[in-house]
């Protein structure tokens, strides 16, 4: 159900996510100190390749990480196996990737 490659991918994506989450929280706390509206935030992120890469990387890592986690739960708790388990893993990953990509695009293209 979980082989060495999936385990490796899940740990690797966790390593990628951890500093990005800390960076996100740190910038958020710093940026709102003087009061900042959503429109002002979007003004700053719009057209920024840096923020698009930052959040794009996060979304890609989350999609892989969470899909593998969903796979484990689906197998151990719901007893799903074989092709159905692979399908659930892929659908979870692709849905998260599309939803995240949509959000990143909105922030970049605002």
């Amino acid at each position: 159900m979980l082989d060495a490659r999936l385990y490796f991918l899940q740990r690797l994506t966790a390593l990628i996510m951890a500093p990005l989450v800390l960076g996100h929280i740190a910038v958020m706390i710093y940026a709102i100190q003087g009061g900042l509206t959503a429109a002002e935030i979007l003004n700053r992120t719009a057209g920024s390749i840096g923020w698009a890469v930052f959040y794009g990387t996060f979304v890609a890592a989350v999609s892989i990480h969470a899909a593998i986690g969903v796979r484990v739960i689906a197998h151990e708790t719901l007893k799903i196996k074989g092709a159905a388990l692979s399908l659930i893993t892929w659908i979870s990953g692709v849905v998260l990737l599309l939803m995240g990509a949509r959000a990143v695009f909105a922030v970049f293209a605002a």
């Binding site: 159900m1 979980l2 082989d3 060495a4 484990v72």
Partner: peptide, 9 residues
């Protein structure tokens, strides 16, 4: 021990 039922579970 790296297969589907291996240590990583």
């Amino acid at each position: 021990v790296s297969g589907n039922g291996g240590c990583h579970n």
